[in-house]
């Protein structure tokens, strides 16, 4: 593990005086796959959005790759690859056109852009389908295209916001393999999901959030020990439910 890629200090976001993220302190080191778990409305997406300079924090500090993403956005944002939860692609553009459009936002052009487009599509297994319109793709293919649109500029930090929602096991497995591969190539990864087994399978460290706060953080084993002592015969889901409770979370954005 290398230096610190992301550090938040007392990060807070309030809407109508209600704290959605409440004095959040996390530190992510280079080379980690950091999982962020939490029930609906826990503040995961808001945290991601603050890190990506989409939502301005009410209070606290963010240090992203040594810079403040709100004050030094131009210097740091091109080092971030953001894969939103939505399928943020244009259905009426072909696969390669989508990747070209979003990769060009980071100042890549000409031959370098063409190369980046092909590499990204190959990476997600869509190179042979590059001439097809995104609207004709299956859910899994759209998810992969969504990823391809965010990696063409070779970011140092990849932020995945629930990238495997609503897809078949093969596509899910493919995406998880690719996340691990990206990590091996040197990218630090922040990953949010509701699928515990996914998080357990790929994340080196996990933070569980609830009501805007990190209520537990550590490796999968550390979290299990925290709940069940030395007995590790407990699933991450059980840990999660023990820490966050079984009450239904009816959350509206």
């Amino acid at each position: 593990m290398g230096g610190i890629v992301l550090k938040t200090t007392d990060l807070t976001k309030k809407y109508n005086n209600k704290a959605v993220v409440d004095n959040l302190n996390i530190e992510i080191k280079q080379g980690e796959i950091f999982g962020l778990l939490g029930p609906n409305g826990a503040g995961k997406s808001t945290t991601m959005n603050m890190i990506c300079s989409i939502v301005r924090p009410t209070a606290g500090e963010i240090e992203l790759l040594g810079k403040n993403p709100w004050k030094q956005k131009k210097e740091v944002i091109h080092k971030v690859g953001y894969i939103p939860q939505e399928l943020a692609v244009h259905g009426n553009l072909k696969a390669w056109e989508n990747v070209e459009l979003f990769t060009s936002l980071y100042g890549i052009k000409g031959e370098q852009l063409k190369k980046a487009v092909n590499e990204s599509l190959e990476y997600v297994g869509l190179l042979e389908r590059k001439q097809e319109f995104a609207k004709n793709f299956s859910g899994g293919m759209k998810r992969r295209l969504n990823i391809a649109c965010a990696i063409g500029h070779h970011p140092e930090l990849l932020i995945f916001d629930e990238p495997t929602v609503g897809i078949d096991p093969q596509s899910r497995n493919f995406i998880l393999d690719k996340i691990k591969e990206s990590n091996k190539r040197g990218a630090t990864v922040i990953y949010t999901s509701h699928y515990m087994e996914e998080v357990e399978a790929i994340c080196t460290r996990i933070a569980i959030m609830d009501n805007g706060k990190v209520i537990a953080c550590g490796t999968s084993e550390e979290l299990k020990r925290l709940v069940n002592g030395d007995d590790e015969h407990i699933t991450l889901e059980e840990v999660f439910l023990t820490l966050t409770g079984k009450k239904l979370r009816d959350y509206t954005e």
């Binding site: 300079s53 944002i77 091109h78 953001y82 244009h90 936002l105």
Partner: peptide
């Protein structure tokens, strides 16, 4: 949510 992609760029 394509607007977000624009926001996470320069």
């Amino acid at each position: 949510g394509i607007v977000r992609r624009f926001q996470v760029s320069n």
